[in-house]
């Protein structure tokens, strides 16, 4: 096992320090970067995100980060998307006009009306499929959510976890090297840290 180098994509997306500190806690070298070559050379990639679909996609394009992220995902190395970093993997969004990365066929939809939005706080995730990144995290664990839209991938076989808030929505996508969560594992106490521990572990052996 060696010290994995994990890139954290920086495109003015809120608090990146907690992501970095969570990765470092488990022995990774975590680099917050908007550099395509740093991303290309990393052992693993974290794609965080907060804010709106359109401004975020424009920020990614302005930094010419769309291709480096897509190439990284296709390379098979461990990838973790967080919050908007899950939503932007899809093709389109109710929230705006800018297309997403299109890694996953499907659309980002608005949470139903009649409930407080954003969906903010701790809610449960029911794991419907296994993935090494969730090893040791029991189904029904609580995670911290802050969002007004949710990912609706066409291939339901990619959904690894679901959460209820007015609608039962996809809160985790996981397949092969890709894991993406609607919640913020770096803000979800012990359950979330376990996920980072597993991710760093995967990056060490990748």
């Amino acid at each position: 096992m060696r010290t994995p180098k994990i890139a954290v994509v920086d495109y003015q997306a809120g608090n990146l320090r907690s992501v970095q500190k969570a990765l470092e806690r488990y022995g990774a070298e975590a680099v917050v970067t908007s550099g395509a070559s740093v991303i290309g050379d990393a052992d693993a990639l974290v794609f965080p995100g907060q804010g709106a679909n359109d401004s975020s996609m424009r920020a990614l394009r302005a930094r010419t980060l769309v291709d480096p992220i897509s190439r990284f995902i296709a390379s098979g190395r461990p990838f973790l998307g967080v919050c908007l970093g899950l939503q932007l993997l899809l093709e389109s969004s109710d929230e705006g006009v800018e297309p997403g990365l299109g890694t996953l066929p499907g659309r980002v939809r608005a949470l139903p009306r009649g409930l407080k939005v954003p969906h903010m706080g701790w809610n449960q995730v029911e794991f419907v499929r296994e993935h090494p990144v969730f090893e040791g995290v029991p189904t029904g664990s609580y995670f911290y959510f802050v969002h007004s839209y949710y990912a609706d991938p066409e291939d339901k076989g990619l959904v690894a976890g679901t959460t209820s808030y007015g609608v039962e929505f996809c809160s985790v996508v996981a397949y092969e090297n890709v894991v993406a969560t609607q919640f913020h594992p770096e803000k979800s106490g012990a359950a979330g840290l376990k996920l980072y521990e597993n991710f760093v572990h995967a990056a060490s052996w990748g």
């Binding site: 320090r17 907690s18 500190k21 969570a22 911290y144 803000k187 979800s188 979330g192």
Partner: peptide, 11 residues
Amino acid sequence: VRQVSERVFIP
């Protein structure tokens, strides 16, 4: 805030 974010992983 910098000190707290080193060791506390809640909002």
